[in-house]
Amino acid sequence: MPAIYDRDAGGLWYDWPTAPLARGGAGFSRNRDRAMELTQIRYFTALARVLNFTRAAEACNVTQPALTRAIQKLEDELGGPLFHRERNLTQLTELGRVMLPLLEQAQAAAQAAREQAVAFRKRDSSPVRLGLDASLAPALLTPVVAELSHTVSALDLSIQQDETAGLAVRLLEGEADAALLIDDGRIPERVHRWPLFSENHVVLCPPDHALAKLDAVPISVLGGPKLLMRDTDGCALRAALGRMCATAGVTPRVRLAASTGEQIAEMVKAGLGITLAGARQPVPPPLVARPLQAADGDRRVVLAAPAGRAHGPTLALFIRLMRARSWSEIPAAA
């Protein structure tokens, strides 16, 4: 970590005057000013959507003068006009365009925090359908799922393993709610991603294999005849293999051997060959993992959910728990 994080090194030394985000005007009391502030944000996002004061007021179920006052107040706080008001045309200003995504997110965050607390108190739960890239260990989910099972009564949770591409489609089509994916540039934009961790690749081999004696494995071994990989379309490990080999000028010789990682591991145990895995995934005993010397070897593991879709209370808790935790240590295999 850079020195800035160190309490005893030269740290950050001042704060900065800022546009207040969640602060209302003076003269209100008993939470009304905060409610007023969040209301301003709601009116702003509604107006930005329809660009018409009358229709925005209708959509928010308030009078037009009330909506206009709220927008003016927000403009005062943010230091400039958010809309160009012309006779028949309302347009976002530059400031308005800059503030829109921020205020939308802020509004959503406050609303989500409130709704989750209420759902938690009422013990409301909703089904959670999770996806997991086939090259990721289900143990990644264990601590968070265990916490949910403690706190959410009648937890209805399913986990499906598949390739990232297929899971991304399921997210977009509403057949899955969230997934742990490998972000190798093939996830559609409409899927929102929270980075969790990155890992390199390792070669898995039996403990008595020649490669087990090496500290690191040269990428040229991937051109050997005994590389076992899953035969499913869109496999993230195979895509990474192609990338790493192309960079190194090696032609990979892949035996498409089985459809699941477990089957591949069994074949490696039986001495049929070696395989690739993520460096932080649990190694099935008695196999050993050896780091692969390769450029472009980063695997970015992300939590993904469809952008803009409302989260049920249990899913929202799942996402919070996943985002809050440290991924510097990966849970051991269950």
Binding site: L21, L102, A109, A110, A113
Partner: peptide, 20 residues
């Protein structure tokens, strides 16, 4: 962990970090 400052927003203590 007050994810996305959601609770702090409701307390009214959140501000946006200016560009500088």
């Amino acid at each position: 962990c007050d994810i996305d400052n959601g609770v702090a927003m409701q307390f009214g203590v959140v501000y946006r970090v200016p560009d500088a």
